[in-house]
Deep mutational scan, measured.
Amino acid sequence: MQRVNMIMAESPGLITICLLGYLLSAECTVFLDHENANKILNRPKRYNSGKLEEFVQGNLERECMEEKCSFEEAREVFENTERTTEFWKQYVDGDQCESNPCLNGGSCKDDINSYECWCPFGFEGKNCELDVTCNIKNGRCEQFCKNSADNKVVCSCTEGYRLAENQKSCEPAVPFPCGRVSVSQTSKLTRAETVFPDVDYVNSTEAETILDNITQSTQSFNDFTRVVGGEDAKPGQFPWQVVLNGKVDAFCGGSIVNEKWIVTAAHCVETGVKITVVAGEHNIEETEHTEQKRNVIRIIPHHNYNAAINKYNHDIALLELDEPLVLNSYVTPICIADKEYTNIFLKFGSGYVSGWGRVFHKGRSALVLQYLRVPLVDRATCLRSTKFTIYNNMFCAGFHEGGRDSCQGDSGGPHVTEVEGTSFLTGIISWGEECAMKGKYGIYTKVSRYVNWIKEKTKLT
């Protein structure tokens, strides 16, 4: 034993070699072989497995989906700052455009905790909710729209109204504003409101030439003092309507412009014939205590009207009353817009006519005020429907199939267009061939041609 100890002390290297040989010859039971080890760690190889990531292109799944990435790591994937920024906006807080917040056709661009709407022409605001041009839906104005110097929408209202708090709607500024039905039992019968379409306001006024200088022999019209197929109006439903009495009662109609003036057809009036105007009328054979009678003290036909040349060209006249009318729910003026808007309103496509005229061709006159909704007829169809001249200051309205029309005794009465609950004068009943005849239409004086003249002559002093 002493000898062994001496050998170990003198030859430590020998001992180490012996131990190493023993270990190498022993069977290893701690580690699995290569094949079995792979069965336990069965993990798919990654895209760049075996390579240094710093030297390969980034992978979106590896960089940002398996674990949260930084902007720089995302930049490695896209290799483009702009594309990385677009991805980053949604990656950080989701897609803010998912709810489609942009209105009126706006395009949404996502941002971090926010979004941006790219608005089409005519709109602005956070969600493109603000109209900035009158060309689109009248700028959301209830009545009139004008573009300011910086191309912003400025709404306005006709006389007797003021802008509401929203700067879009119009509200009454006087007790009985024009064009409004205020009798409670008839307010439910107000005709369907007309909503502004998209309009090209630059070209809204037709490029028409008034044929002022045409000389033409007097034409022989049949029954051209021209509501057939209409309905009984309720008291106060058309408070701007008046009836004219002269040699015979209810020979023509008219509309209240203001307390002192009536507008009617020029062919209705004769110099030297006494005319009485009755406002607030409903049943011409009954006294309903809503009527107001006034005498006409002055007749002003349009300066281009000449019955000797043509009885229905420039067929418009103004009547001055001896005493002002007292405005109330049964006696209310009709609204008159400017030339541009009167023309736009007419193009809405349908209007209402009213009167006490004959209820059928050569038949009896109506006792109760009649009204009828009539569609506008395109000019080409209008011209083809008659052998008589249709001037540019006239328009056609009615039904091709016949059966409904204005008729004798309705002449001078109103053709009105309702705009968001307020009625505007767009025409004056003038003439036609018979009444409600198939293929024939009622012919009306186009008020847009005469609004400046009306307003100039009827100013209240």
Rank of each mutant, 00 (worst) to 15 (best):
E340H: 13
G106A: 06
L20R: 03
K126F: 10
C178E: 01
K446R: 10
G125D: 00
I300A: 03
D378S: 12
K68L: 06
C170G: 01
C170Q: 00
G94F: 04
T186Y: 09
R298K: 12
A266V: 02
S204T: 08
Q143L: 01
C141K: 00
R191V: 11
E76D: 15
C145Y: 00
T29C: 09
C157F: 01
Y161E: 00
R226I: 10
T218C: 05
T389N: 15
G122H: 04
L327A: 04
G253D: 04
W88N: 15
E86A: 15
C170P: 02
H400F: 10
G50A: 14
S406M: 14
G357E: 13
N328P: 00
C117N: 00
V296F: 01
G439I: 02
R373M: 08
G349M: 04
A149I: 12
E259A: 08
I454T: 00
V153P: 11
N135S: 11
N213Y: 09
C435A: 04
V263K: 00
N147I: 09
L60S: 15
I300C: 04
S182Q: 07
I15H: 04
A380P: 13
E116D: 12
A317R: 00
A308V: 10
R62T: 04
V228C: 10
N38F: 07
K293S: 08
G412T: 11
S184R: 09
K137V: 06
G349Q: 05
E66R: 10
E270Y: 05
T386Y: 13
N393E: 06
F31T: 15
H400R: 14
T194L: 06
V92W: 10
E124M: 07
Q90G: 13
I443M: 10
K51E: 08
C435W: 03
V269N: 00
V326L: 11
L372W: 15
L41S: 15
R75N: 15
G229N: 07
H289L: 07
L372V: 14
I297Q: 07
K440F: 04
K457N: 14
K51I: 05
V451S: 13
Q57N: 10
G13F: 13
V359Q: 14
D338H: 05
D322I: 02
V273C: 05
L32G: 15
N5W: 09
I454P: 00
N36T: 10
S169N: 12
K152A: 10
D249C: 03
N393I: 01
E281Q: 11
E129R: 01
V296N: 01
I284D: 06
F238S: 03
G413C: 08
G403K: 14
S220Q: 10
V374D: 01
Y47T: 15
N113E: 09
W118S: 15
R162E: 09
V92S: 13
V273Y: 06
D95P: 04
T461L: 09
G398I: 03
N42K: 08
V56G: 15
E53S: 08
S220I: 12
V181W: 08
Y352H: 11
N304Y: 09
C117R: 01
S156A: 09
W431I: 08
S114K: 07
P375S: 12
G50H: 15
C335S: 01
S448M: 03
A380G: 12
G409Q: 12
H267Q: 06
